[in-house]
Amino acid sequence: AQFIESYVCRMCSRGDEDDKLLLCDGCDDNYHIFCLLPPLPEIPKGVWRCPKCVM
């Protein structure tokens, strides 16, 4: 059997509050909206890229 790795935030390495986890459309990394600098108030609509992919 294969275990699917749960999504974890690249900043805090936690997978809780998954309703606040953002998936980068560039590299598929995950980030909590409140772990980003600056934090986001809510999940953005449409395409989102993490700080690494925006640079």
Rank of each mutant, 00 (worst) to 15 (best):
E5R: 13
H32N: 02
C50T: 00
P51E: 09
P41A: 09
D28A: 14
F3A: 09
D19F: 09
P39W: 02
K20F: 08
H32F: 02
D16T: 07
M55V: 12
P38G: 04
L23T: 14
Y31F: 08
H32D: 00
V47P: 06
G46Y: 04
K45F: 03
D19V: 09
D16E: 10
C9N: 00
W48K: 02
C50I: 02
W48T: 00
F3K: 12
L40T: 08
P51S: 14
A1L: 05
C53H: 00
C53D: 01
V54E: 04
Y7I: 12
L21N: 04
V8A: 10
D28E: 09
L21Y: 05
N30T: 11
R49T: 11
Y7C: 14
E42K: 03
L36W: 06
F3S: 13
N30E: 11
V54G: 06
I4A: 07
L22V: 08
V8F: 05
E17D: 13
F3R: 13
E42S: 06
R10D: 04
Y7K: 14
L36F: 06
C53A: 01
R10W: 04
C53E: 00
C50A: 01
P41R: 14
Y31P: 01
D25C: 06
L22Y: 00
C12H: 01
A1G: 07
M11G: 10
Q2K: 15
S13W: 06
L37P: 10
C50W: 01
L23K: 15
M11D: 11
P39I: 10
D25W: 04
D16Y: 09
I43A: 05
H32R: 02
E5A: 05
E17N: 15
L22D: 00
D25Q: 07
V8P: 09
I4M: 14
C27G: 01
P39D: 06
A1E: 08
D25E: 06
S13C: 07
V47K: 14
C12P: 03
F34Q: 11
C12L: 05
D29V: 06
Q2C: 04
M55D: 13
S6L: 06
C27L: 01
C9V: 01
P51C: 04
V47W: 03
G46F: 05
C53M: 02
S13F: 07
L21T: 08
F34T: 13
K45E: 08
K20A: 10
G26S: 08
M55G: 03
V54D: 03
C24Y: 01
D16I: 14
V54R: 09
V8K: 15
P38M: 04
Y7S: 14
F34Y: 15
D28Q: 05
C50G: 00
R10Y: 07
E5T: 10
E17H: 06
D19T: 15
Q2M: 09
E42W: 05
E42D: 13
C35V: 00
D25S: 11
C12S: 01
P51F: 11
N30A: 15
R49E: 07
K52G: 12
K20N: 05
I43L: 14
M55A: 11
Q2I: 15
K45I: 06
K52T: 12
C35D: 02
S13K: 07
I4F: 10
C9A: 01
V47S: 13
R49Y: 05
F34R: 13
G15N: 06
L36E: 03
C53V: 01
F3I: 07
W48E: 01
P41E: 05
N30I: 15
F3D: 04
L37I: 11
S6M: 15
I33L: 03
P39A: 12
P38V: 10
K45S: 06
Y31L: 03
I4W: 05
V54L: 07
L23Y: 08
G26P: 01
K52E: 06
P41V: 11
W48M: 02
C35K: 00
P38W: 03
P38L: 06
G26T: 12
L22T: 13
L37D: 14
C9F: 02
V47F: 13
I33S: 08
G15C: 15
E5C: 13
Y31W: 04
G15V: 12
L21W: 08
I4L: 05
H32Y: 00
D19P: 08
G46D: 13
P39F: 02
Q2R: 06
L22F: 03
P51V: 08
P41D: 12
I4T: 15
V8R: 10
L37F: 07
Y7W: 06
D18A: 14
D29R: 12
E17L: 07
R49S: 05
C9K: 00
R49I: 07
E42Y: 09
C50K: 00
L21I: 11
F3T: 11
C12F: 02
C12W: 01
L37C: 08
P51A: 06
C27M: 03
S6A: 10
H32A: 02
F34C: 11
V8C: 06
E42C: 06
C27W: 00
E5K: 13
F34H: 09
D25A: 14
I43M: 14
V54Y: 10
K52M: 03
E17Y: 05
S13Y: 08
Y7L: 11
L21C: 05
G15Q: 09
L36N: 03
P51R: 06
R49M: 10
I4P: 09
F34V: 10
D16K: 06
H32M: 00
F3Q: 07
P41K: 10
S6G: 11
L36Q: 03
L23W: 06
D19M: 06
E42H: 04
D16N: 14
L23V: 14
V47Y: 11
Y31K: 02
D28S: 14
V54H: 12
D18Y: 05
I4Y: 02
E5V: 03
I43D: 04
P38R: 09
C12A: 00
R49P: 00
I4C: 09
S6Y: 10
D28G: 13
Q2L: 09
D18K: 15
D28I: 15
C53Y: 00
G15Y: 12
V47E: 08
K45C: 08
R10G: 08
V54W: 01
L23H: 05
A1T: 02
D18H: 15
G26L: 10
K52Q: 10
P38T: 05
E42Q: 13
R10S: 05
G15M: 08
P41H: 05
C9G: 02
G26I: 07
C35G: 00
G15R: 13
C9S: 01
L36V: 09
N30M: 07
S6I: 04
C53Q: 00
L23F: 04
S6E: 10
D25Y: 04
C53I: 00
D19Y: 05
I43C: 05
K52A: 12
L21A: 04
C50H: 01
G15E: 13
P51D: 12
G26Y: 05
D16V: 12
E42T: 13
N30Q: 14
D25K: 07
P41W: 04
L37G: 09
D16L: 07
M55R: 09
D28P: 15
A1M: 14
D16Q: 08
D29S: 03
L36C: 15
D25L: 04
V47N: 11
P41I: 09
G46L: 07
D29M: 06
V47C: 07
